[in-house]
Computed example of a mutant assay.
Amino acid sequence: MGPGNDTQISEFLLMGFSETPELQPLIFGLFLSMYLITVFGNLLIFLAIISDVLLHTPMYFFLSNLSFADICFTSTTIPKMLVNIQMQSKDISFAGCLSQIFFFILFGCLDSFLLTVMAYDRFVAICHPLHYMVIMNPRLCACLILGSWIMSVLGSLLETLTALRLSFCTSMEIANFFCDLPEVLKLACCETLINNIDCLVYFASVMLGGGPLAGILYSYCKIVSSIRAISTARGKYKAFSTCASHLSVVSLFYCTSLGVYFSSAATHNSHSSAAASVMYTVVTPMLNPFIYSLRNKDIKRALRRFF
């Protein structure tokens, strides 16, 4: 349909994973279980840090914010999918789709910025241990969190407002279980406008994703240099162990995100793309509490005291 014959639609259809009725209860149970594990796991980490005065340090302050962001990130997409399965519906309103895009990008960016802030915290702790409490003072920590929120909101607004300028054809099917902005852009009619918006979205994605990643890589280059200068093996192990959990979460977050990007670019199978999206929208937030708690004695102690 040409640009002159486009229509203003009021809703989209989220195609999800499978249209087979027999698989819907299995999909519902699987995602409900993962969602509950994600929410309760991150909520326990959040409450344990708040309730234990010994964990009121910059590192755990940033971790509590990351747990909160992970809860919100997962809650942006999974509840709507569960409701649609339960109601045997695929509908999502245009306003609901835009809201989902906004909050999905917001909390995804917030995750990325918080991981960068945590990398800086580890850099200061390992490279400047004697000045750690002076540098990472409460005012700086609050400014870093506030800056992460501001950058995430502005980036999300920039990308979401592009969808308001679009006109859509008769196709309303989004090849995913949530309103993913690239999938929504594929449904628009005006090819010239789409090319311009694609460039804008690509540039914003590179800045919001690549910028924090560059900061993380720079911090770890400095950390590795400092660890190599430590004379004893015990000292090297102790220094590395303080950032092992964060490095694991960073690797999981960015590897799954890049994996989804490359897999979606290489295949046109909608079910494969939706399944790949599960890795960074559900699996990564679900695993973060386990990564930070299994080998962290402070978190284990705080959880025991909390219960």
Rank of each mutant, 00 (worst) to 15 (best):
S18L: 09
S18W: 11
S18F: 12
E19D: 13
E19P: 08
E19F: 14
T20E: 12
T20M: 08
P21Y: 03
E22V: 13
Q24N: 08
P25F: 12
L26I: 13
I27K: 00
F28V: 03
F28Y: 08
G29N: 05
F31T: 02
F31E: 04
L32N: 02
S33M: 10
S33Y: 08
M34C: 08
M34I: 07
M34V: 06
Y35G: 01
L36Q: 02
I37C: 06
I37Y: 06
T38Y: 03
V39W: 02
F40M: 09
F40W: 12
L44F: 13
I45S: 01
I45Q: 00
F46W: 14
I49E: 00
I49Y: 00
I50Q: 05
I50C: 05
S51T: 09
S51R: 07
S51W: 11
L55D: 01
L55R: 00
H56D: 13
T57G: 07
P58F: 10
P58D: 05
M59I: 13
Y60K: 00
S64I: 06
S64D: 07
N65A: 11
L66D: 07
F68V: 09
D70T: 12
I71W: 07
S75K: 01
S75I: 03
T77A: 12
I78Y: 02
I78T: 04
P79A: 02
K80P: 12
M81V: 08
L82G: 05
V83Q: 06
V83L: 14
N84Y: 13
N84L: 13
I85W: 15
Q86M: 15
Q86S: 15
M87K: 11
Q88E: 15
S89P: 11
S89D: 15
K90L: 15
F94K: 07
A95E: 15
A95F: 15
G96K: 06
L98H: 10
